[in-house]
Simulated scan of single mutants.
Amino acid sequence: MNVSAYMSAPAVSVNATTTIGEAARCMDLHGVGCLVVTEGTVLRGIVTDRDIAMRAVAGEFDRDDPVGAVMTAPAVTVDAAQDIHAAYQTFRNSGVRRLPVLDGHRVVGMLTVDDLLMDVFRRVADLLGPVAWSVLEEPPGPRDEIGPRARKQGKSPPASRGS
């Protein structure tokens, strides 16, 4: 599968002159941990919540300073048409947690380590489903208070408290 099947779109973007304070508010508003920094449609860098915490706050930048002063540039990217395994390799080799996704030179989305973890979890769940059904005496899911196993073993329901 291609990277585009796993990415979040569109990526939230700001320009390099956006203030650090505005960038932080933008992340909060959109519920994201990073913003792509663009000039028109051209990617100039990426700024993460960690960049703001570690470079801006710890580096004693002012909230009115431009986000371009604390962004990471150039950003490590991945192409939307690449196979998802290329993204795994890029994450492994670069050590970053977020990758802007490009279609040519245009930013079309964002791929995060969390996106790939969700894919892994879904795949593991797909594998475990048949195994779980073959090992369990009963299907997974809610049961009544004593449950089928307890009835099979002749157990009575638990006594109610306060009686």
Rank of each mutant, 00 (worst) to 15 (best):
V42D: 08
I84R: 04
A159D: 11
V36P: 00
M27T: 14
A75S: 14
R151M: 01
S94T: 05
A11S: 05
M1N: 03
A125L: 12
V12L: 11
V57C: 09
G68P: 04
Q153G: 00
G33V: 06
Y88V: 04
A23Y: 03
N15A: 05
A87E: 00
Q82W: 12
S94Y: 02
G147C: 03
T77A: 14
V76M: 09
L116Y: 03
S134I: 02
A58V: 15
G59N: 13
I84L: 08
V42T: 14
R92K: 11
A87T: 03
L35S: 03
V107N: 07
L128E: 15
I20Q: 10
V108W: 05
L43K: 11
D79N: 15
I84V: 15
V57D: 05
P10L: 12
P10N: 07
D62P: 00
Y6H: 10
D64S: 14
A53H: 05
M1D: 04
R143Y: 02
I46M: 13
A16W: 06
K152N: 01
A86V: 09
L35G: 02
G147P: 01
T38D: 02
D28T: 15
E137N: 07
V107P: 05
H85V: 11
A56I: 09
A11M: 12
V124H: 09
L111C: 09
G95P: 04
Y6P: 00
S94Q: 09
P139E: 07
T17R: 15
R98Y: 05
R97M: 06
V14H: 08
S134E: 07
V113T: 15
A73K: 15
R143D: 02
A16I: 10
A24T: 14
Q153T: 03
G31K: 13
T72W: 03
D65Q: 08
V120Q: 09
V76W: 01
D49L: 07
L99R: 11
A86D: 02
L99D: 03
P140W: 01
A11T: 06
T112E: 10
L43N: 09
D51T: 09
D28Q: 14
S8M: 06
A9I: 12
R44L: 06
L102G: 03
A53P: 02
A53W: 01
A75K: 15
T112D: 08
R55A: 08
F61N: 04
R44F: 00
V107K: 08
A81Y: 04
M7Q: 09
G33S: 09
A87M: 02
T90L: 02
S134Y: 04
V113F: 12
V67N: 03
D115I: 10
L116H: 05
D49I: 07
T90W: 01
A24I: 13
C26I: 11
H85E: 12
H85A: 11
R98E: 04
A80N: 02
S160T: 13
H30T: 08
R106S: 11
H30Y: 13
G59I: 13
A56N: 03
M71Y: 01
A87C: 02
V42R: 15
M54G: 00
A24V: 15
S160M: 10
G154Q: 06
G104E: 11
S156D: 08
T38M: 12
D114Y: 08
F121A: 14
A80C: 08
V37D: 00
G129C: 04
P158E: 12
F91M: 06
D62V: 05
L29Q: 14
P142G: 06
L136R: 07
